[in-house]
Amino acid sequence: MVATSLDSRESLMLNYSKAMSNVKELQARGCKVLHEVDVHSMSQHPFLIRVRFDRIIYNFPHAGFFSSERNRLQIWFHQDLVRGFLKNACEMLTAIGEIHVTHKTTFPFNEWKIVELAKEIGLYLVDEEQFSLLDYPG
């Protein structure tokens, strides 16, 4: 298992109180943790360039806050993020690989049109699951 973050290790330590304990727990369980991984170029990351995955998961993608979540430009930034992720993730899959995205489906988040973004690059929706907070303890 590989876990990534866009933030540097130092940025995580400064901005998120539980980040390092989460990183240490992942590593203790045998997970490789990589920092400063951009979804727009992750398929070219030195560690990831030759690795192929059966599952690639993006939990709650968000491009950051530039404006209101309802603002068309803000939505475009989110779509650009997801589009970049999907494009790169495709390059990193095994022949039987799947891409999973955990995402809100209510307005304005449904305006991101993730299924349509996936279709643009040749992906299709296989299944949609209802979110359960119990799947994310802590």
Rank of each mutant, 00 (worst) to 15 (best):
residue 127 D to K: 10
residue 138 G to P: 09
residue 10 E to S: 14
residue 127 D to E: 12
residue 32 K to H: 10
residue 24 K to C: 05
residue 3 A to N: 09
residue 46 P to R: 04
residue 54 D to W: 11
residue 65 F to W: 04
residue 36 E to H: 03
residue 40 H to Q: 15
residue 12 L to D: 02
residue 80 D to H: 10
residue 91 E to S: 15
residue 82 V to M: 09
residue 105 T to C: 02
residue 43 S to W: 11
residue 49 I to R: 14
residue 24 K to T: 05
residue 38 D to N: 15
residue 62 H to A: 09
residue 119 K to D: 13
residue 124 Y to M: 07
residue 60 F to V: 02
residue 40 H to L: 14
residue 133 L to P: 06
residue 116 E to F: 14
residue 94 T to S: 11
residue 9 R to V: 10
residue 65 F to P: 00
residue 11 S to W: 08
residue 37 V to N: 04
residue 56 I to N: 14
residue 26 L to K: 01
residue 85 F to Q: 13
residue 59 N to S: 11
residue 103 H to I: 11
residue 75 I to T: 07
residue 91 E to D: 15
residue 38 D to Y: 12
residue 16 Y to D: 01
residue 24 K to Y: 09
residue 76 W to Y: 11
residue 116 E to C: 13
residue 68 S to P: 00
residue 1 M to W: 12
residue 98 E to H: 01
residue 33 V to G: 04
residue 72 R to I: 11
residue 4 T to F: 09
residue 2 V to F: 10
residue 30 G to F: 12
residue 69 E to F: 01
residue 68 S to N: 04
residue 8 S to A: 11
residue 96 I to T: 07
residue 5 S to L: 13
residue 104 K to N: 04
residue 128 E to Q: 02
residue 56 I to V: 15
residue 76 W to I: 04
residue 13 M to E: 13
residue 110 N to R: 03
residue 95 A to Q: 04
residue 64 G to I: 02
residue 89 A to R: 09
residue 50 R to P: 00
residue 58 Y to G: 06
residue 59 N to W: 05
residue 11 S to C: 08
residue 92 M to S: 15
residue 12 L to Y: 06
residue 91 E to V: 13
residue 135 D to N: 10
residue 83 R to P: 06
residue 79 Q to V: 00
residue 74 Q to A: 13
residue 48 L to T: 06
residue 55 R to K: 14
residue 25 E to G: 08
residue 94 T to D: 03
residue 19 A to K: 00
residue 73 L to F: 14
residue 109 F to P: 00
residue 56 I to W: 11
residue 105 T to P: 00
residue 114 I to W: 08
residue 136 Y to Q: 12
residue 48 L to N: 02
residue 19 A to C: 01
residue 115 V to D: 13
residue 65 F to T: 07
residue 56 I to Y: 12
residue 56 I to T: 12
residue 83 R to K: 14
residue 108 P to Q: 01
residue 82 V to I: 15
residue 24 K to F: 07
residue 94 T to F: 06
residue 2 V to N: 05
residue 52 R to C: 12
residue 137 P to R: 15
residue 58 Y to E: 09
residue 117 L to S: 08
residue 88 N to R: 12
residue 61 P to Q: 06
residue 29 R to C: 15
residue 100 H to Y: 00
residue 13 M to N: 06
residue 82 V to G: 04
residue 79 Q to H: 03
